Structures are given as C-alpha cells and as structure tokens.
Simulated scan of single mutants.
Amino acid sequence: MSLVARKYAHALFLVADEHNQIEEILADFTGVVDLVRSEKNLLNLILTPSLNSDEKKGILLRVFETVSSQYVKNYLKILVDKGRFENIFEIYDDFKAQCNEHRGLVEARVLTVVPLDEALRIALEENLAKRFSKKVILENVIDASILGGAVVYVGGQVIDGSIRNQLDQMKTQMNSLRLQ
C-alpha cells in the first residue's frame, strides 16, 4: 500500500467517522469503485490528459449522480484535482480496511481446489475469528494450481497449507540433502 493511498484513504475515513457515516460512505465508495472497475473506458477517460479537471469532474458527477453521499462526490472531485484518481483502487482498499478495523472485522481469502462445504467454512471462520480476535468475512476462491489443501490470506498474513507448498518444501529439503 502506497503512502499516497494510505493518506487519502485515511482522510476519507476521518470524514466518515466524524460525521457518523462510515457505512453510508463505504457503500457509496464501493459502488463507485465497482463501476470504475467494470467500465475501463471510464477510468481511461478520467485519466485522459487532454481533458481539464473541470471536464473530468463534470463527467464523474454525471456518471455518479445517484451517489447519495455528498462527501463521496466531493472526494472524487478532490482526487481529480490532485491528480490521484489513478490511485482510486488502492485508496479504496485501504479505506475499506480502515472501516473494517473500526467495525472489528477482518477479511480473509481462502484458496482451495474445490469450494468449501458450509461446515468447513464455518469452522474456518470461527478459528480465524479466535486467532485474530475479530469477526471474519471469508471469501473462498477456487485455484487448481495449489493442488489440494488451502492457502489463507488474512490480516496481511499467509497461512499456506497447500499441497503445492508441501511439495516445494520437500523438494527444497531433498536438494539440500543432495548438496551435503
């Protein structure tokens, strides 16, 4: 996470917290970022050097006229004025993390070869919640390259229990034995 993204995300978080609108601002900012992610042409248009900042802000305000939070609308204008709109995804990720921290939540992503069944998913969420002392929001991502087992990403940590990792460790051990 860049220092710029952290600074801009924290500024928005402070406004959201000060005005007791963390949930509303997070929801609106999520909607904005989701649309920008899905409409690559919009991002390219806003980053076009031949448009001045007033033109870019006008485009954004028309596209996001349904955004209810005036703070989010003003924030988008600031990102354009400061030439930081290109950092919107990184800023959003940091802002969301700050909101989650404030709400006592942590997001976790678990890679598996097949989808987790509900019982295993609940058990993993409970174990991670105990380990991190926070409520866990778990996302299951299917990734055949791990061969089996699971890789969990949570709170900046990686817990790698994949078959791929175990095979790599055995290979390293065998190579080190051969060198002795």
Rank of each mutant, 00 (worst) to 15 (best):
D34E: 15
G148C: 10
K77P: 10
L60P: 03
R84A: 03
G104Y: 15
A129R: 02
R103S: 12
V110N: 03
S38I: 06
L45F: 15
K57D: 11
G83K: 04
Q21I: 09
D54M: 10
K96P: 09
V33T: 10
V136N: 09
E139P: 00
D34T: 10
N44V: 04
V151E: 04
T112Q: 08
G31P: 03
V158E: 01
A108L: 06
Q21E: 12
H102F: 15
K73G: 04
V110Y: 05
G148H: 01
N100I: 09
V33S: 06
V141P: 00
I78A: 06
F89C: 13
V63A: 06
L42E: 09
L26E: 13
K56D: 08
L79S: 05
V80Q: 13
A27R: 06
K56F: 08
I22E: 13
N20A: 10
L120H: 05
L138K: 05
K57S: 09
L138Y: 06
I46E: 02
L116N: 00
T30Y: 00
I146W: 02
L61N: 13
V33Q: 05
L47E: 06
T30A: 07
R84G: 01
V113D: 10
F64C: 00
Q21K: 14
L42F: 09
Q98A: 11
I88V: 14
A97W: 14
K130Q: 10
L147Q: 08
L26K: 13
N87T: 12
V80D: 04
A123S: 09
T112L: 01
V114N: 12
A129K: 11
I78M: 11
V141I: 04
L45V: 15
V136M: 11
V141Y: 06
L79F: 15
V80S: 00
N41A: 15
I22W: 12
G156E: 01
S53F: 04
I78P: 02
H102D: 13
S38D: 14
G149R: 06
F29V: 01
I137P: 06
S69N: 03
V154K: 02
E23I: 11
H19S: 10
R103P: 04
S145E: 11
G155K: 09
L124M: 00
G83F: 07
A129I: 07
F95Q: 07
S69F: 06
L42P: 14
V67C: 03
H19D: 10
V110Q: 02
F95H: 00
V141H: 03
D160M: 00
K134S: 12
I59D: 11
S133I: 14
V36N: 00
S38P: 01
N20Y: 12
K73T: 02
L105M: 14
I78S: 06
D160W: 04
I46V: 12
V106M: 11
N140E: 01
G149T: 02
L47H: 08
A144V: 07
I91G: 07
F85N: 00
G104F: 15
L138S: 07
L51P: 05
A119R: 14
N52Y: 05
A150F: 09
D34N: 14
P115H: 00
L26Q: 13
N87P: 12
E65D: 08
A108I: 04
N41Y: 14
L124A: 01
G155P: 08
K134Y: 15
